[in-house]
Write a protein that binds this DNA or RNA. Structure first.
Lengths: 103, 103
DNA sequence: ATATCATGCAACTATAGAGTTGCATATGTT
DNA sequence: AACATATGCAACTCTATAGTTGCATGATAT
């Protein structure tokens, strides 16, 4: 999966809320994580499918319900992106700092 | 600005490409950064407006052209998000590890 | 066995946004 | 002054997707 897909998946208030809930409580059933989002269960289900395709989340059927869990794969992608940006950004900030301090 | 807005802004192939270009070369004019994206200048301009609203980028008019630069504000947001997630994720992985190692 | 709960799937609507074309305007350049 | 370059703005099309309703199905509890 690409970093774009991950960012896109996280770039929605409902989906980010889901991810934040998962990052706190460990595991949710599909219906429990769909509560209190201001949308229907079917709507929430669509969001979960987006998160699953982007490997932000895994869906594991268990009896009559489906367990939703965070998938570490996506986190790694975002971390890599940030650290790359950060490195390049830092060297440029360093250059700017030196430039400013020259006079 | 919210983390959602930042993620949303980065969740588009054209916009992410622009950000990557900026992270390498230091500063671009509006027309230069609009080249080779497969879309028109006006299309690219709309993307830049999205990035600006999300504080990923700053636009500074200079004579007849506009300078596009990275805005560190957004990077901080993403970093914070990742580190928070990371911390919570790690503690949960730790708990899982201990659970597995118990028998 | 029957009622209840969790989920899946399909069809539909409505809106956001990605991309375009066309034209106007301002700044450089020769 | 004349020309080229960089940009802004408006109107338009088209597609993706967020959200809905309605119904079917499979698992659990009484």
């Amino acid at each position: 999966m690409s970093a774009v897909a991950t960012f896109r998946a996280l770039g929605d208030p409902v989906r980010l809320e889901m991810v934040l809930r998962l990052s706190r409580g460990s595991s949710f059933t599909l219906s429990r994580i769909s509560e209190g989002l201001g949308i229907t269960r079917q709507g929430a289900r669509k969001h979960l499918e987006v998160l699953r395709r982007a490997q932000v989340v895994t869906l594991a059927p268990s009896g009559r319900d489906v367990l939703v869990q965070l998938d570490p794969a996506s986190l790694v992608l975002v971390k890599d992106f940030v650290s790359t940006m950060d490195k390049q950004w830092d060297t440029r900030m360093e250059r700017l700092k030196q430039f400013v301090e020259e006079d």
